[in-house]
Amino acid sequence: MKHKPPSERDSKTCPVCGRPFLWRKKWEKVWPEVVYCSDRCRNARRTRSEAEENLKTN
């Protein structure tokens, strides 16, 4: 991918915190698979969904 200024980079919105995040070089090959803006949000989502499942079963 050719260098783009930050204002022209692709962006997504994190489903956990709702904040937008921009394309990063380290995500170049996996950008379609990137869903969360950070490890913290990815872990929070996993924890939240497990808690919801436990409430449904009890």
Rank of each mutant, 00 (worst) to 15 (best):
P15L: 05
R46E: 08
L22Y: 04
W23H: 12
E28N: 11
V30L: 08
D10M: 12
E8Q: 15
W23S: 01
D39T: 13
W27H: 14
K4F: 01
C41S: 09
V30P: 01
K26R: 13
V30I: 15
P6H: 14
C14T: 04
E50S: 10
R48T: 13
L55W: 04
T13Q: 15
T13S: 11
P32W: 06
K26Y: 06
S7Y: 11
E8I: 02
S49C: 03
L55K: 13
A44C: 00
Y36M: 11
R45E: 01
P15H: 10
R40L: 11
C37N: 04
R45I: 01
W23E: 02
R40D: 09
W27L: 05
V35K: 14
E50T: 07
T13A: 09
L22T: 01
R46G: 03
V30Y: 03
N43I: 04
R45C: 00
P5S: 13
C41I: 05
K4N: 04
R19I: 09
E53D: 08
S11Y: 05
W27G: 02
R9A: 08
G18A: 07
R24C: 10
A51Y: 06
E52C: 04
K25H: 11
W27S: 01
P32M: 10
S11V: 05
K2V: 11
R42H: 09
E33M: 15
P20R: 15
K56Y: 01
D39A: 15
F21K: 05
V34I: 15
S49G: 01
K25Q: 15
R9N: 08
D10C: 08
V16C: 05
P32T: 06
